[in-house]
Lab assay of single mutants.
Amino acid sequence: MASQGTKRSYEQMETDGERQNATEIRASVGKMIGGIGRFYIQMCTELKLSDYEGRLIQNSLTIERMVLSAFDERRNKYLEEHPSAGKDPKKTGGPIYRRVNGKWMRELILYDKEEIRRIWRQANNGDDATAGLTHMMIWHSNLNDATYQRTRALVRTGMDPRMCSLMQGSTLPRRSGAAGAAVKGVGTMVMELVRMIKRGINDRNFWRGENGRKTRIAYERMCNILKGKFQTAAQKAMMDQVRESRNPGNAEFEDLTFLARSALILRGSVAHKSCLPACVYGPAVASGYDFEREGYSLVGIDPFRLLQNSQVYSLIRPNENPAHKSQLVWMACHSAAFEDLRVLSFIKGTKVLPRGKLSTRGVQIASNENMETMESSTLELRSRYWAIRTRSGGNTNQQRASAGQISIQPTFSVQRNLPFDRTTIMAAFNGNTEGRTSDMRTEIIRMMESARPEDVSFQGRGVFELSDEKAASPIVPSFDMSNEGSYFFGDNAEEYDN
Rank of each mutant, 00 (worst) to 15 (best):
M13K: 12
M448V: 08
M447L: 09
E46K: 12
Q4A: 10
R384H: 00
L418G: 08
N370E: 03
V299F: 11
C164Y: 06
K214W: 05
L56H: 03
R65C: 03
I475W: 13
A27W: 10
R389F: 03
P303C: 07
A336T: 12
S245K: 01
T157F: 00
S467W: 05
M447K: 13
E434V: 09
V29S: 02
M167Q: 05
E24M: 09
I225M: 12
K87S: 03
V29P: 12
K77L: 11
R75I: 11
F206I: 13
K236S: 11
V343Y: 03
N59A: 03
E454G: 09
D51Q: 12
E46F: 03
T188S: 12
V67K: 07
N124D: 11
Y52A: 15
K229V: 10
F458M: 15
M222T: 11
A218N: 05
S69N: 08
A428N: 03
L315S: 05
S473Y: 13
F346H: 09
S326T: 12
R106I: 11
F338E: 01
R74K: 14
S326G: 15
F291D: 11
L143H: 07
T15E: 00
K90G: 14
I408E: 00
R175D: 04
I116K: 13
S402W: 02
K227Q: 13
D290Y: 08
I406N: 08
K325P: 01
E375P: 08
T62P: 00
Q122F: 05
L47C: 12
G93H: 08
S413F: 00
N144S: 07
I347C: 11
Y97L: 13
L47S: 01
E469L: 02
T215H: 05
S69D: 05
E339R: 00
I217L: 11
N125H: 01
Y40P: 04
D468I: 05
N142H: 14
G37R: 12
F230Y: 12
I365A: 06
G460K: 06
L353W: 00
F39K: 02
G394H: 08
W139D: 07
I57D: 04
I265S: 04
Q364R: 12
S269N: 06
E320S: 09
R389Y: 02
E18P: 14
